[in-house]
Amino acid sequence: MKIVIQREKIAVMAALLLICFSATAQDFSLLRERMVRDQIEARGITHEPTLNAVRSVERHLFVPPERRNMAYDDGPLPIGHGQTISQPLIVAYMTELVNPEPHHTVLEIGTGSGYQAAILAEIVERVFTIEIIPELGNSARELIDDLGYENIEVKIADGYYGWEEHGPFDAIVVTAAAENIPPPLVRQLKDGGRMVIPVGSPFMVQTLMLVERRGDRVLTQSLMPVNFVPFTRGGR
């Protein structure tokens, strides 16, 4: 009798958990839809594959559990080791800037929690991503495997050298910028390929920089500063 009661209790608790979980998942889905509408589309991101990718990737899974309730907020979030998961707008803007196409192979430097790689993997054929901090790289790899992304490959290494055996790449996304742009990365960019780099601290104003290889020439373009809130240059 006691065992039966225990079992019933567990069943009720499990049901409650399930209800709670599905309610939460539903909430996250709503939040995600709102994030795309208010934070991304409203600020001029129009690239349909990017919008679809941001709509479908469950951002809250890439955020540390204690900050999951902030996953769809309009800002970056700490993921440990001094790293962040970028603000949704930055992720979408960077994705749009490299103009990803289904047949593309993309290299990402700085896997972090794996969110940017997941967004790219929704659009392109292959994503190669390199993370220098083993703890971050391993947990991102685990999560990416759990979510079933077979077109993402994670390597724990120094991103400076790129990933020569899989290059040249149609696009390179550098998520953590440094004072220099490593020459090996420039070399691994296809002719006509694009590299995007956010310049500045994730907690401050960031300016996105686009690097394009055109034959022997390498051009850079400083784009608008981006921040937590709509950042236009009107009125200047």
């Binding site: 120094d158 742009i181 020459p183 850079t220």
Partner: peptide
């Protein structure tokens, strides 16, 4: 550390190793 490199504002035409 093996990954600490410093070359501020290095030209894109630089092909050597930092």
């Amino acid at each position: 550390a093996d990954a600490l490199r410093y070359a501020p504002g290095l030209s894109m035409s630089f092909t050597g190793d930092i």
